[in-house]
Design a protein around this nucleic acid. Structure first.
Ligand SMILES: [Mn+2]
Ligand SMILES: [Mn+2]
Ligand SMILES: [Zn+2]
Ligand SMILES: [Zn+2]
Lengths: 157, 157
DNA sequence: TTGCATCTGCAACTGGATTGCGGGTAACGG
DNA sequence: CCGTTACCCGCAATCCAGTTGCAGATGCAA
């Protein structure tokens, strides 16, 4: 079980995205553009990988948002169709921008490193809906690969 | 979020499989063939879908096995390579016979019904390892489709 | 049959996620 | 601008699948 590693030691996931744009997008869903929603959505937009609640909480620690508020914001984003949620093999949910919201976030596979615990978006590995048994209808397809990431393979350990 | 539904209302998942065979298979792993291990392994062998700890616990309620024992048996089965574990989108682990243990359990996709919460093994949907970024190595690939199963689609609801 | 490493039962614990509720505030109308 | 109010947030308690520690039981090889 990999230990938690703060975002600072990872790829840059700093909240920096067109502010007005983000607020407008939230209001377009018929909801209030609150500081918490804006901050989290901006973060997701610039994230290079799927973020857990803990990731968001640590990155936005200075802002002083309540833990529960961040849970609710993430839930709301999913419900509003702005983000999607995948259950990781370590029983934590990870969030990333919804496919429909940006072309580079089209349906793709995810990779979980068993060593460092990070989850990468494999943008190049596209996912297609398989043929299902009669009567079954699909809403979502998730492909998740586990193993060791490049960084962890390089490190002698 | 679908409510838990007891096994009795679902497909027949009664523990009935060659007893001696099962005991021998357990001992072949250098472990003791205890009642709990035998019962759980027999259950997995006849299950038509991936079982959660709760499924096993309810089905074997009469036997009086402790909750923790069943957790440990399931963990042991995975460690021994006799079963494999998939993390479901509702944050519960589900278990099924390992691919190497029976030809009909080759690497396949799983289907989760958002309505009734059941997880089906899509034996016909084979899974192959995708091409990964340089330096990445894979150990396991999981494909999980979500949507509505035939039964739930048929029911008017 | 006996020895003992392995396994089980029980109870306490963990950590991510959820819920209830009183107080706060974004957005709209005036 | 300011008042109103439905929506949102902070806080504390709670849930729940899964884990851990330890003392006692037991499968099985000798
Ligand atoms: Mn992604
Ligand atoms: Mn399966
Ligand atoms: Zn890694
Ligand atoms: Zn169903």
């Amino acid at each position: 079980m990999p230990v938690y590693r703060p975002l600072s030691s990872l790829a840059p996931v700093v909240p920096q995205a067109p502010l007005e744009d983000v607020s407008a997008r939230i209001r377009a869903q018929g909801a209030r553009a609150t500081p918490a929603r804006i901050a989290v959505l901006r973060m997701l937009q610039t994230a290079s990988r799927a973020l857990s609640h803990a990731d968001v909480e640590h990155a936005l620690a200075d802002s002083g948002f309540d833990r529960v508020t961040l849970y609710r914001v993430l839930d709301w984003l999913v419900e509003a169709g702005l983000a999607h949620r995948v259950a990781d093999s370590d029983r934590v949910f990870r969030f990333s921008l919804a496919a429909s919201r940006s072309p580079e976030h089209a349906r793709h596979a995810h990779f979980r490193c068993d060593d460092c615990g990070r989850v990468f978006c494999l943008e190049d590995v596209r996912v297609s809906t398989p043929v299902l048994p009669a009567g079954f209808t699909s809403k979502e397809v998730q492909v998740s690969v586990s193993g060791a990431c490049a960084e962890c393979n390089a490190r002698p350990s």
